[in-house]
Write a protein that binds this DNA or RNA. Structure first.
Length: 231
DNA sequence: CGCCAGGGCCTCA
DNA sequence: TGAGGCCATGGC
């Protein structure tokens, strides 16, 4: 059995804290509206911004998502009511830099409808597993987006599996595992600590970018010694 | 120029 | 249930 905790510690001591998930400070406007990393306590607006970012980052680099989020802030659109009411083509043009803008505009409207019906204050009190199923019923929210919302917007101790995590653990030990299989491996073999899950997933993304890319770069990889893919 | 990025839906077996 | 096509910009 792979030692998940020891992988986490190696990654953390190698890369340090990643400060996920970046959010824009509330009340900040204009071009200097740059996102801030590592915010721990969040307003409801910031939580909503994380949810929006979770949709915008689907198969898209975070750099492009930042541009779209800055545009949304300039237009005061980090607000479910305003997203619900804005013309969908206008919304699509605002989030254009994030790509797939027609699909994502539709998805943001679906998210906004859900938040208007359910209220963020209500979601914070809800059980993570039943809430996950509700999120998955939103058209445009799949497993990774739902789990990102649970963990990064609502502080639920849920582990996010993404393409990097699948690739890393496919090389480490666990080839061919489904999303749910990988996720339950993390959740059942680690303490249910949302701060640690937050950091762990962010560290895996960093490892995936630096070393465990499609074309693997094992030189300098902090967990190469544990890895069967390392020659 | 091609490849990739913090996926998910729809269709068709 | 699983593979394949589709969505689209920006960085390198």
């Amino acid at each position: 059995m792979i030692q998940l905790k020891s992988i986490y510690e190696k990654l953390y001591s190698h890369f340090g804290s990643q400060g996920w998930w970046p959010v824009t400070p509330t009340g900040c406007r204009g071009p200097e509206n740059t996102p801030v990393y590592g915010v721990s306590t969040r307003t409801e607006k910031q939580r909503f911004e994380v949810m929006v970012g979770a949709i915008l980052t689907q198969n898209t680099s975070w750099k492009n998502v930042e541009k779209a989020i800055i545009n949304l802030n300039k237009e005061n659109l980090i607000d479910p009511i305003k997203i619900k009411n804005i013309n969908i083509k206008k919304l699509a043009s605002v989030i254009r830099p994030s790509g797939y803008y027609n699909q994502k505009a539709k998805k943001l409207k679906n998210l906004a409808d859900f938040i208007i019906k359910n209220r963020i204050s209500g979601l914070l009190k809800e059980d993570a597993n039943s809430l996950r199923n509700k999120l998955l019923s939103i058209n445009g929210v799949g497993p990774e987006t739902a789990d990102s919302i649970l963990l990064y917007a609502l502080d639920k101790p849920i582990f996010v599996i993404d393409a990097y995590t699948k690739r890393i653990f496919s090389r480490l030990c666990c080839k061919g595992q489904s999303y749910e299989e990988l996720q339950s491996m993390f959740i059942s073999n680690l303490p249910h600590d949302s701060r640690m899950f937050n950091e762990y997933h962010a560290l895996l993304v960093e490892l995936g970018k630096r070393h465990c890319a499609k074309k693997q770069v094992c030189e300098g990889c902090p967990i190469a010694v544990l890895c069967s893919a390392n020659q």
